[in-house]
Nucleic acid binder design. Structure first.
Lengths: 120, 120
DNA sequence: CTGCATCCATTCGGATACTG
DNA sequence: CAGTATCCGAATGGATGCAG
C-alpha cells in the first residue's frame, strides 16, 4: 500500500471530491453525535441552505454514509443517522481535522508572508 | 481535541477545500518522491493542464507546502520540492487515501444499488 | 522551459418559490 | 416539516496564445 497505483489515486481523488466539498464534512460532524432531523441539521450547520443540505444528504445516503428513516407522523419526521461506513469516514477525517487544526495557524502565517513578499 | 469548536470546523473546511480540489493531492503525491521540474510534474500527473499545474503549485507554495527553486540556466529550470509541512500533509492524506482505497469498492456498490432503487 | 493572461464551458452554490 | 424545481451569480477548470 506504500505504492500508489493510478487506480487508487483516482479513487482517492473521487473520495476527496465528495468529502472536500463545502458541506459534507460539516453535515457528517453534525450527525455523528446521534440521529438528527432535517431542520435539526440545518440549525446545527450554520449557513447551509436547505437545498445544499438536501443535496449533501442525498449524496451521503447514496454513498451509504447516512441512513434515512421516515417516521410517518404529522407533521412528518425524517431522521438521519450515520452508518458504520459513515462513522468510519468520520474517524478518518477527524485525523485530517486534527492535522488541519494543528497547522492552520502556520499555513495562514505562510500565506500572509507570501502575500507580503509578492507586494514588494 | 475531541470537542469540535466552530473555529476548528472552519479551519478544517478551508484545508479540505484546498486539499480536495481536483489536482492538489495528485501534485503533492507526484512531488513527494523527490524534487521535480515543472514539465516533469506535468508528465507525471496525467491530464492536468499547464495552467492548473501553475495554479496548484502556486497555491501550495503560498501555503508553504512546496518550495520553488529556480536554477538560472538556459533553458531555465525550476525545481519543486515538498517542504516538511508538505510531507506532513502528505502523510496525513495518505491515511485518508488508504481509507478511500479500502472502501471505494463498497461505496461504488452502494451508489449502484441506490441508483437501481431510484429507477424503480 | 516556465509561466502569465485571456476567453469560454461547465459546475457549484445560494435565494426563492412551490408541493406533499 | 421535509423536499423539489428553477433561476442566477460565482467559482472551477480547460484551451489557447503570448512572454521571459
Amino acid at each position: 500500500m506504500t505504492a500508489k497505483p493510478a487506480a487508487a489515486c483516482r479513487g482517492v481523488s473521487e473520495i476527496l471530491s465528495r468529502v472536500g466539498d463545502k458541506w459534507t464534512i460539516l453535515v457528517v460532524v453534525a450527525i455523528q453525535s446521534g440521529s438528527l432531523r432535517f431542520n435539526g441539521i440545518k440549525r446545527q450547520v450554520h449557513g447551509i441552505s436547505q437545498q445544499m443540505l438536501t443535496r449533501t444528504l442525498k449524496a451521503l445516503e447514496r454513498d451509504g454514509m447516512v441512513e434515512r428513516t421516515v417516521h410517518p407522523s404529522t407533521p412528518p419526521q425524517v431522521e438521519y443517522t450515520l452508518t458504520p461506513l459513515g462513522h468510519s469516514l468520520s474517524d478518518t477525517v477527524r485525523k485530517l481535522a486534527d492535522w488541519a487544526a494543528g497547522h492552520h495557524g502556520v499555513i495562514e502565517d505562510n500565506r500572509h508572508r507570501y502575500d507580503a513578499q509578492q507586494a514588494r
